[in-house]
Write a protein that binds this DNA or RNA. Structure first.
Length: 669
RNA sequence: GCCGCUUUAGCUCAGUCGGUAGAGCACAUCAUUCGUAAUGAUGGGGUCACAGGUUCGAAUCCUGUAAGCGGCACCA
């Protein structure tokens, strides 16, 4: 008989329990309420706490914290994982012959990947599956952990036709104990656990199956396409409803929807993946472009413009032809056949390609003439229009397009200038993101498995970028500082700027890559103080990333209610009666003279109608003019988000709008 | 590219069992001159994504193509 175990509880008390006791026993010993509420246990044998099943016997003296629904993070994780298992059980009950694979929890719920017997699942199957899940939850089936032998388990999976499970079981590490979790006595899944004590601990009203999709087995395109069912899962109905409400709110700020409602841009199949910018959308673009030009001018960049189409040999030399050709638009360098019959192109011409990036062209500019060390750093900026033939399934509104314009620059510098240039860029990016009201995280993406260049160069490049962030004072938790192994580009490590938007989503936009490969491949050099040729280092950098995507992010971040300096229409002058028309025209003229983007609405409509319409279009300010205003030379200013209008003299309104319409970088401190 | 779904008026959508299309908004005209989120009436507007097929007859059923949507994979 083993010795009893000493279990310390969070309140400091210690309980002595017989050998073989479990967290469930401790909970029961403390009280029936806790026994009922307990979902799992955090047990610490001195090497850090671990989440385990309530029914898992203690291995020795331990610290114990019982997990209940009040321990939200742990409880959600357990619930979501169990929802996934219940989903799998339900699907196998309803669709015999379906193979099970994986089913993890996600940020808001869970999914499970199946290999269906007959056809992939569709959204029409979801209500039936949900109903079956609720039956399994209502049955309150006990969940039991069982340790099984590897060979026995593999044989078992094989015998019931579960090829994916058998494959996976065979590949788990040799020293790992394999476990299955039983749901009642009639269904089990291989799983590391932990799980809730029974299916009845789940709230049947706290989940919803949301969608189906395809997913590759083990995430690899070469493998079988499985059928994935997604769900969102919570601890109670209130949490679920809150989440569903959040999703609705997020859908309302979808830039594709707002782009249409606000008449900013459109996409159509004849040019899928390329944007038709409407006048109002392009005003946003132009405001950004003007802002960025001021920023780079003062930061010592030189703006350039480079060819859209270049000979394929140039792309071979840069290395892109070999690695990224499948995503490039190639063009035969010949006159197309103009006869009615016969192929348009001969197939024998040399290839050219639309530029997928600006870097090689900037190197070609650098290579013109002889560069001295005195010329460095040379910062070449381009609003670079690039084309990439993206996989069609990847296209998404403004966020992923086939033609886009980068705020792209390449800083050619000496080795000893890298850290300072990178530091200065961190400061520039910080200023710009602040101007747009974004918070952000800085991350360093380290060398990938497949890469160009010597390891020693990678060591150096990574250390330099790290040092630059330290000197910028941003290698701290406040700036979300983090290193990401394996995430770098094939030619360089990169710093990444991840913005957080108004509803907490993150968007990677900014980047800085320290590149020694491309200058070498394209033979860029400068004459140093010693009179010899040296290779410059090339820092690739962008702050918006692309104008298209950044505008998409801005639309979603502000839910269409752009700050006045970016709003395509900054004010509408709307009349209540036609007697005010002449005054309104005068007001519009004065606003225009003050540089305000203003529209007049003199239509014979009720003021309610006008207010509604311009509010829906997210115009920041309305100047409402009736008889009174016309007589007094005032305006009634109705501003988006304000509860009441403010009546003020016209001059005052103009001064106010003018101040608000001033871009943040031009405001007086 | 892969899996599933979708495609009807400028927009949002309805259209039953296969019998040549309908609403609201928008637009035009007329009336209304009104004080902060929809004034009323009248009118015009559609090769039902495209190409084939089945059928006496196709928006509807079948096949293919394209684009869009949700994911997966990809994202220099």
């Amino acid at each position: 008989m083993s010795a009893p175990v000493k279990i310390s509880l969070p309140d400091g008390s210690v309980r002595e329990m017989p050998a073989g006791s479990t967290p469930a026993d401790v909970a029961a010993a403390i009280g029936p309420g806790l026994a009922k509420a307990a979902l799992a246990a955090r047990v610490d044998y001195g090497a850090g706490s671990e989440l385990v099943d309530l029914s898992r016997p203690f291995a020795g003296d331990a610290q114990l914290a019982l997990v209940t629904s009040r321990d939200e993070a742990d409880a959600l994780e357990l619930a979501r994982h169990d929802f996934a298992h219940v989903l799998a059980e339900a699907v196998q009950a309803l669709f015999p012959g379906t193979q099970i694979t994986f089913g993890p929890s996600t940020d808001d719920g869970f999914y499970y990947d199946f290999d269906p017997d007959a056809r992939p699942f569709t959204e029409e199957d979801l209500p039936e599956i949900e109903a079956e899940m609720r039956r399994i939850i209502a049955a309150d089936k006990p969940i039991r952990r069982e340790v099984v032998g590897r060979d026995e388990l593999i044989a078992k999976w094989r015998s019931v036709g579960e090829a994916f499970k058998a494959e996976w079981a065979g590949e788990l590490p040799e020293d790992e104990e394999l476990t299955v979790y039983w749901s009642g006595e009639d269904w089990y899944d291989m799983c590391r656990g932990p799980h809730l004590p029974s299916t009845g601990k789940l709230d049947p009203a706290a989940f919803k199956l949301t969608r189906v999709s395809g997913a590759y087995w083990r995430g690899d395109q070469k493998n079988a396409m499985l059928s994935r069912i997604y769900g969102t899962g919570w601890l109670n109905k209130k949490q679920l409803d809150t989440h569903l409400h959040r999703l609705e709110e997020a859908a309302k700020r979808d830039h594709r929807k707002l782009g249409q409602e606000m008449d900013l841009f459109h996409l159509q199949s004849e040019a899928h993946g390329s944007v038709f910018w409407h006048p109002k959308g392009y005003l946003i673009w132009r405001a950004l472009e003007a802002y960025m030009r001021r920023a780079i001018d003062t930061a010592g960049y030189k703006e350039v413009k480079t060819p859209q189409v270049m000979d394929a040999r140039q792309w071979e030399q840069s290395g892109h032809w070999g690695k990224y050709r499948e995503n490039m638009f190639v063009i035969p360098d010949e006159v197309p056949n103009t006869e009615d019959d016969g192929p348009v192109i001969s197939g024998e011409a040399e290839w050219m390609a639309l530029k997928p990036m600006n870097c090689p062209a900037h190197v070609l500019i650098f290579r013109q003439g002889i560069k001295s060390y005195r010329d460095l750093p040379l910062r070449l900026y381009e609003n670079g229009c690039c084309h990439r033939n993206e996989p069609h399934g990847a296209l998404h509104g403004l966020m992923r397009v086939r033609q886009f314009t980068q705020d792209d620059a390449h800083i050619f510098c000496r080795e000893d200038q890298i850290v300072e240039e990178a530091r200065a860029f961190c400061a520039l990016a910080d200023r710009i993101y602040n101007d747009f009201g974004f918070t952000y995280a800085v991350k360093l993406a380290l060398r990938p498995d497949q890469r160009f260049g010597a390891d020693a160069d990678w060591d150096k490049a990574e250390a330099e970028l790290r040092e630059a962030v330290v000197r910028a004072g941003m290698a701290t938790d406040d700036y979300g500082w983090e290193e990401l192994p394996g995430e770098g580009a094939f030619y360089a490590p990169k710093l990444e700027w991840h913005l957080t938007d108004a509803i907490g989503r993150t968007w990677q936009v900014g980047t800085l890559q320290s590149d020694r490969v491309l200058p070498e491949r394209l033979d860029a050099s400068y004459i140093a103080e010693d009179g010899d040729k040296h290779r410059p280092v090339m820092l690739h950098r962008a702050i918006f990333g692309s104008y298209e995507r950044f505008i998409g992010i801005l639309i979603e971040h502000f839910a269409g209610k752009l700050p006045v300096w970016l709003a395509p229409v900054q004010a509408v002058v709307a009349t209540i009666v036609s007697d005010a028309d002449d005054y309104a025209r005068d007001v519009v003229r004065q606003l225009e003279a003050a540089g305000i983007r203003v529209e007049a609405d003199l239509r014979n409509e009720k003021i309610n109608y006008k207010v509604r319409e311009h509010s829906l279009k997210k115009v920041p300010h309305m100047l409402v003019l009736g008889k009174r205003e016309a007589e007094e030379g005032t305006v009634a200013l109705r501003s988006m988000g304000a509860e009441h209008q403010k009546v003020m003299p016209l001059a005052e309104a103009i001064a106010m709008l003018r101040a608000e319409a001033t871009p943040p970088d031009l405001r007086l401190p």
